[in-house]
Amino acid sequence: MPNQESVLWYCPDPVLFAAARKAFAVRGVRVHPVSPEQVGETVGHLFGLKGFAPREEGVAVPDAPAEPALVLSGFTRQRLDALLSALKRAGVPTIAHKAMLTPTNVGWTFAQLCQELSREHQAMHGGSAPAHTAQ
């Protein structure tokens, strides 16, 4: 697992993407942007971890998530709270699909992780995944 605070940041909205990226930079957080073409890569590969090869050529790329998603690594609880507050101050709505990097999800594709986060969110809150809301 990476030691430095870093995030995988997927956001289909370019304005929100830029606002969050600025909040990450101000906090010294390393950002790994995730494009729709990269959602079939493993979380470990996207973080640049050893032992996680890129997706093989010819493997279909899954559909990209409709909602922003954030995967965090190397954060203490205090630093995580500070980052979420900074995102709120930057005007970034609550990100419903967020997770910490774990030994379990490091080998999942980004798309698989987003699907799991969506299932968990629906189980906890009922109904479908929310539209952007204020934090």
Rank of each mutant, 00 (worst) to 15 (best):
F52I: 06
N3F: 11
F47H: 01
L101M: 11
L117H: 05
Q135M: 02
P68S: 04
T133C: 03
R30Y: 07
A18R: 15
E56L: 15
F75N: 07
P65Q: 12
G44H: 02
P2T: 14
H125K: 01
M100V: 00
P54R: 15
Q38W: 06
P62V: 12
H132Y: 04
V34L: 07
P130N: 10
P14F: 11
Q115Y: 08
M1S: 13
R89C: 01
S6T: 08
F110Y: 10
H45P: 05
Q115E: 15
E37L: 11
E56N: 10
Q78T: 11
L80W: 03
M124W: 04
L101N: 07
S73T: 05
D13V: 07
L46K: 02
V106Q: 03
F110G: 01
K50N: 14
K88A: 11
G127V: 09
A123M: 11
L113F: 01
N105Q: 08
F24H: 05
P54C: 13
A25M: 05
F52H: 15
M1I: 02
R55A: 15
A86F: 04
A23H: 02
F52D: 02
A131C: 00
V61M: 09
E120I: 08
L80Q: 12
L46H: 06
Y10D: 04
Q38Y: 03
L101S: 06
H32M: 11
M124Q: 12
A82P: 02
L83P: 01
A131T: 05
G91V: 05
S6P: 01
R27E: 12
H45W: 11
E41M: 13
M124H: 06
L83A: 00
L83I: 00
H121S: 08
G51T: 06
A111T: 14
S35R: 15
C114P: 02
L46S: 04
A64M: 09
L72D: 00
V43D: 03
P14R: 14
R119V: 14
G127Q: 08
L8Q: 07
Q135D: 04
F24R: 00
M100F: 07
Q4N: 12
H125Q: 06
E116C: 13
M1G: 13
T76I: 05
H132F: 01
E41C: 08
Q112Y: 07
P54L: 14
P130L: 12
V71P: 03
A69P: 01
A129H: 08
Q112C: 08
K50H: 12
W9R: 07
Q78C: 00
S118C: 08
S128F: 11
L87K: 01
F75W: 05
N3Y: 06
R89M: 10
G40K: 12
R55V: 14
L101E: 03
D63P: 09
L16N: 02
H125D: 00
G91C: 07
D81Q: 09
T109M: 07
S85Q: 10
P12D: 11
A69R: 00
G48C: 05
F24N: 02
T102A: 07
K22S: 11
E57N: 10
S35W: 08
V7G: 03
P54Y: 08
W9N: 05
Q122C: 15
R27Q: 13
A18G: 10
E37K: 14
G44E: 02
Q112A: 15
T133K: 04
A18S: 14
R77P: 02
T104C: 03
